[in-house]
Nucleic acid binder design. Structure first.
Lengths: 210, 210
DNA sequence: ACGGCCGTCACCCGTTTCGGGGATCCCCGG
DNA sequence: CCGGGGATCCCCGAAACGGGTGACGGCCGT
């Protein structure tokens, strides 16, 4: 609400060029850029300090990704609308982001005007998803839905990809090796994989894990 | 050579924000930005038309990647120094880029000043590699050089990633399961992996297999 | 209040893989 | 001609895997 016309915003991106360009552009468009951040943790700090109406954060950043920033900011600054900015529009990513509570999702390929529209849109309480991405979203939800793994399943697959055994993964996640096995099997099922190795390969290829 | 002091440049990036910021920054630093491009093909056209001293192009672009642009520009505009700009510094990528004839390689995380230095450096005939990347390059060339797998090893890993068992892979390649095991083990050794799953993950990430 | 999904853990069974050996062939280069 | 690397094959004991089933507590939505 309601100090109506100036939209306040925090911008975060690990690429100086992007940060510069975006902040500059928004400022000239009449958006008040309260702070800039070069990584996720810095972004979170700024958001908590300044409580902007909108936080425009890059998805891929050192130390803390945009989605994780969103999850944390949800609690510490619930009134800030999170707007993710990413160079790569992935269906799985978008889903995860929306689950995390993101209010908008803009691709870096989009013209700068779209960015401005997105900022104004989420500031006004609406949701904004990049039109291109919205297209693929619609397209892919008809045919085959990309299987969505739970957080735990992704954790396990991730460590599996790093060569850890069930036992080691269990230690790492503070759960028993049996539970790890269960997660792996569920993930295999969802990914329609015959072996854990194939599950990891699929997850990697579909960017369900990094 | 030799119309010495103004460096001419073409900039290409599919992200408007980046393109804007970079072009702006270079211009203010006294670089003459002859043209901008939003994708690889456009970049190639501009380079061929304008024959700039330096072409600063993003690696990941629609239609034509920066490396492919480099290969083609090598023929059509051999005097233009190709400078790649990328958000993600991959060892394999760097190698491929240098093979393609790239003269410089800058990460988007680097401060803008580095970009300027890189442009001036390659314009002057030198090679420039982002210090961060150069670090990992050095580190990895001392310890372990990028492991190269034999054709057979790649075949096996490829099928492994598709969820086949040793036995099935053997049938597919007309060899015994034991031999498959040998190849997997050799590959694991080369990739410094503890498990076959990790070997596949590494091979996928390093693009040793598709 | 109920069902459903998630995360957790456990046990069983047969198959597969692992890690470490050794072995043969062939081809290429010094 | 001999060495080395690649590709092929084999054996063993121990460990991990896949597949099925059962169970318990939370949390969420209805």
């Amino acid at each position: 609400m309601t100090q109506s016309d100036t939209v306040t915003c925090v911008v975060a991106d690990d690429h100086p060029a992007v940060l510069e360009a975006v902040a500059e552009y928004l400022t000239q468009a009449g958006i008040s850029v309260l702070a800039r951040a070069h990584d996720g943790e810095e972004a979170l700090e700024r958001i908590e300090q300044r409580k902007p109406q909108v936080a425009l954060v890059d998805v891929r950043m050192p130390r803390l990704g945009g989605i994780e920033v969103t999850r944390r900011a949800k609690r510490s600054a619930p009134n800030t609308a999170m707007l993710l900015y990413t160079g790569y529009g992935d269906r799985a990513l978008l889903t995860e982001a929306l689950d995390a509570g993101v209010r908008g999702f803009v691709l870096k390929e989009a013209p700068m005007e779209d960015l401005l529209r997105a900022v104004r849109s989420v500031a006004a309480g609406n949701t904004y998803v990049d039109p291109v991405l919205a297209g693929t979203l619609a397209a892919s939800s008809v045919g085959s839905q990309m299987p969505q793994l739970t957080q735990r399943e992704r954790d396990v697959l991730r460590l599996l990809a790093d060569g850890l055994s069930n036992e080691e993964i269990g230690k790492r996640l503070f759960i028993s090796a049996e539970t790890v096995r269960t997660h792996v099997r569920k993930a295999m099922e969802k990914l329609d994989a015959d072996t854990r190795t194939q599950a990891v390969a699929r997850a990697l290829r579909d960017r369900l894990i990094a």
